[in-house]
Nucleic acid binder design. Structure first.
Lengths: 162, 162
DNA sequence: GGCAATAACATAACACGTTATATAACTTGT
DNA sequence: ACAAGTTATATAACGTGTTATGTTATTGCC
């Protein structure tokens, strides 16, 4: 059974990028499972943004992440429920909601920055290493590599190599 | 406000691929809006698969598209509601559900194959044309190009060039 | 033949993306 | 100063992906 998205070439590039991104996130999740407050991989960029840029309004967070404002609003609610971020009203503008890392959120980010995120970055970099040429070919190569050895296996073998 | 996903490099590649795939699908949607039974861009690969491979079981469709079986089951329900596909029991195995294009579905596919799909393919190919080198750099280039001129503008300028 | 294991599809619950629209706060112009 | 327009966030409705689990049909073995 051949892969239809691959066979469709440029026509289905959108669907294919989405599919590959989802697989990458799912693989990454296995590595992120080591963290204490378990967090979906898709929410890590929110924490990373707040860590790098400091407290942000909902709108600024949406712009930094490149997603819609309602998407940010909903995920922020989840992060507040998990106790990883805190929100408060804007100092000048009462319409704004300022989102900031909580103590627990900062702790999680520090733990991730120290160990996990660098390992994931290295594993993904290794996954993409040596690739060159047309985009479709590189995507096919990454799909094949991922099918041969999932990301968490790559990260662990990297570990052993140290 | 800089782009956090871009700044995170390989670490957020999954999120970034998903985001770009979604944008590509959304842009593509504008072009697909010409079709009569309006269909979300993500459902086109289902029709393309059935067109290329003929009637398929739910499981085979899942494998051909590289998505989960429940995902296929749900989208097939939607396609049946729109009258684009029909389902029947498997001839040998009563557990199976065979999915096939309906007359309306075949009509839609023929219309799309004749005009729209080639135009989209060409527009996406043009979007990726001339790119080379590391994956992250190509992604950044595509994001930039898309921000400069959305896909449907590219398709239309191609049209004019004929 | 009949019970247990397997396999195919359905369903539920969750995460997450979108667009369209509502609500509330700020800004503007007269 | 107040009505009108704009802007920030919230909410609703939809599509789609996932995993976990339930149902039903088939297989296999004794």
């Amino acid at each position: 059974m051949d892969d239809i998205l691959r066979a469709l070439g440029h026509l289905a590039l959108g669907s294919r990028l989405k599919r590959l991104g989802e697989q990458l996130q799912a693989d990454t999740q296995h590595l992120l499972d080591e963290l204490d407050p378990l967090l979906p991989s898709g929410q890590h960029p929110f924490l990373a943004a707040l860590d790098r840029l400091g407290p942000l309004t909902v709108g600024d967070l949406a712009q930094a992440l490149g997603v819609s404002q309602p998407g940010v609003t909903r995920t922020v609610v989840r992060l507040v429920e998990r106790g990883l971020v805190e929100t408060g009203p804007g100092p000048d503008d009462q319409r704004q909601k300022i989102v900031a890392l909580s103590a627990a959120g900062r702790e999680l980010v520090e733990a991730a920055k120290a160990e996990l995120w660098p390992r994931i970055d290295a594993a993904v970099a290794e996954l993409c290493a040596g690739l060159d040429g047309p985009l479709l070919a590189q995507l096919a190569a990454i799909e094949d590599r991922l099918a041969a050895a999932p990301l968490h296996r790559r990260a662990r073998s990297k570990e052993r190599a140290r």
